[in-house]
Lab assay of single mutants.
Amino acid sequence: KELVSALYDYQEKSPREVTMKKGDILTLLNSTNKDWWKVEVNGRQGFVPAAYVKKL
């Protein structure tokens, strides 16, 4: 599985998104959309802005 690192804090703005803190390591589930990537963090799945994470 592919991992990404959070470059910035992000506070979810809808139920489809997830909150992350800078430095968090997230499991990348889907990166086909260039703007929003689906990740899993702390057992929750949702979307984060692609520009806020980088692949490890």
Rank of each mutant, 00 (worst) to 15 (best):
V4W: 14
V18N: 04
D9Q: 03
G43F: 05
E2T: 14
N42L: 08
P15E: 12
G46Y: 04
S31C: 13
V41I: 15
R44M: 08
Y8N: 09
T19I: 03
V53F: 04
A51Y: 10
E2H: 12
R44N: 07
N33P: 04
T19V: 03
S5V: 15
K54R: 12
A6S: 05
V53W: 01
K1M: 13
V48D: 01
V39G: 00
G46I: 03
V39S: 00
T32W: 09
E40S: 09
G43P: 01
V48S: 00
D35F: 15
K21R: 13
Y10A: 00
F47P: 00
E17K: 04
F47I: 07
E2L: 13
L29F: 04
G46E: 02
S31F: 06
G23I: 01
L7P: 01
T19G: 09
W37C: 06
Y10C: 03
V39I: 07
D24G: 03
K22M: 09
G23P: 00
L3C: 13
W37G: 00
I25M: 08
Q45V: 15
M20G: 00
V48M: 01
D35A: 10
E17G: 13
T27A: 10
W37T: 03
V53S: 00
K21G: 05
V53E: 01
F47M: 09
E12F: 07
V41Q: 10
L28E: 01
S31E: 14
G43E: 06
A50L: 02
K34W: 07
R16M: 14
S31I: 08
G46M: 05
G46F: 07
V39L: 03
N42D: 13
Q11D: 14
E40Q: 08
F47Y: 15
P49Q: 02
L3R: 09
I25N: 04
N30I: 09
T32H: 11
L7C: 11
Q45L: 08
E2Y: 12
N30V: 09
V18I: 15
Q11T: 14
L26C: 12
K1P: 14
Y10G: 00
K13C: 12
E12S: 15
S31K: 09
T32V: 10
M20L: 09
G43A: 05
D24C: 07
L3Y: 15
A51E: 11
E40H: 05
R44L: 08
